[in-house]
Amino acid sequence: MGDSFHDQLIEDSRFLKDDRRLDTELVDKLILQLNRIYPQILTDKEATRFRDLDVPTCVRLGELLTHLQGKGEEACREFYRALHLHVEEVYYSLPTRLRLRDSADPLGYPGVYQQRYVLNDRGPAFFLSCFSIAVGMALLYYYSEAKVSGGSRALGVAALGLGRKAREVLIWYTEESLMK
């Protein structure tokens, strides 16, 4: 492990403070775990202060993290152990855990995730309707070569539902083919 637990906790602190999964009950479990098993890290008086329900949970958690960073490497390591024990899903979603996991197995978890490129979010029905219009226009164009007068009129009528530029092109094409 290249980073110390102290450095990792500094990096993960912002994520932990913002994570809504760490509610009052879970923060209390972490505090009690550290207090009961490691009273040298978190004394009874400190645990009582961090469990004060009059203070918002995010503030108490921020103060706890700052306190643990001040206590040193061992305190930070035991916090990670308690977090892993009580809130595993948060532990595995920490930025340092994700980075360590990615660097440990570069083939299993590529560092650069493939992004999904979405051209539009309208779905398959929109694609099918656009494709149908394109096929219909291609068929009209193909049959308008054989029958200049009938196909050109149909092509002109097809231009009614299109945008201004496309409509101008189709109407121009219809007028040109009628003049021939």
Rank of each mutant, 00 (worst) to 15 (best):
P95M: 08
P95S: 10
P95N: 10
T96D: 04
R97M: 13
R97Y: 08
L98I: 10
L98F: 03
R99P: 00
R99W: 02
R99L: 12
L100W: 05
L100M: 10
R101S: 11
R101N: 13
D102R: 15
D102F: 04
D102G: 12
D102Y: 06
A104D: 07
A104S: 13
A104V: 02
D105P: 01
D105V: 00
D105R: 07
D105Y: 06
P106H: 02
P106Q: 02
P106W: 00
P106A: 03
P106Y: 00
P106F: 00
P106N: 05
L107Y: 04
G108C: 04
G108F: 00
Y109G: 04
Y109P: 00
P110Y: 00
P110R: 04
P110I: 01
G111A: 11
G111S: 12
G111I: 08
G111R: 12
G111H: 08
G111V: 11
G111Q: 09
V112H: 14
V112I: 13
Y113N: 13
Y113W: 07
Y113G: 10
Y113P: 02
Q114T: 15
Q114D: 09
Q114M: 08
Q114S: 13
R116A: 15
R116Y: 05
Y117Q: 14
V118L: 08
V118N: 12
N120T: 14
N120P: 15
N120V: 04
D121K: 14
D121C: 07
D121T: 13
D121I: 05
G123A: 03
G123K: 04
G123Q: 03
P124K: 15
P124S: 15
A125Q: 12
F126G: 04
F126D: 09
F126V: 14
F127M: 13
F127E: 08
F127R: 15
L128Q: 06
L128F: 07
L128C: 02
L128W: 02
S129P: 02
S129T: 10
S129H: 02
C130Y: 01
C130S: 07
C130N: 08
F131C: 14
F131T: 09
S132Y: 00
S132H: 02
S132Q: 07
S132K: 09
I133C: 07
I133A: 15
I133M: 13
I133H: 09
A134S: 08
A134D: 05
V135K: 14
V135F: 02
V135S: 11
G136D: 03
M137L: 14
M137G: 07
M137V: 11
A138C: 05
A138Y: 01
A138N: 06
L139C: 06
L139E: 05
L139Y: 04
L140G: 00
L140H: 03
Y141N: 09
Y141H: 09
Y142M: 15
Y142W: 13
Y142I: 15
Y143L: 12
Y143E: 11
Y143R: 11
Y143P: 00
S144M: 06
S144Q: 04
E145T: 05
A146N: 09
K147R: 14
K147C: 08
K147L: 06
K147Y: 10
K147G: 03
V148D: 11
S149H: 11
G150I: 05
G150C: 06
G151K: 05
G151S: 06
S152I: 00
R153M: 09
R153G: 12
R153L: 10
R153V: 01
A154L: 10
A154Q: 12
L155V: 10
L155M: 15
L155K: 13
L155D: 09
G156V: 01
V157G: 01
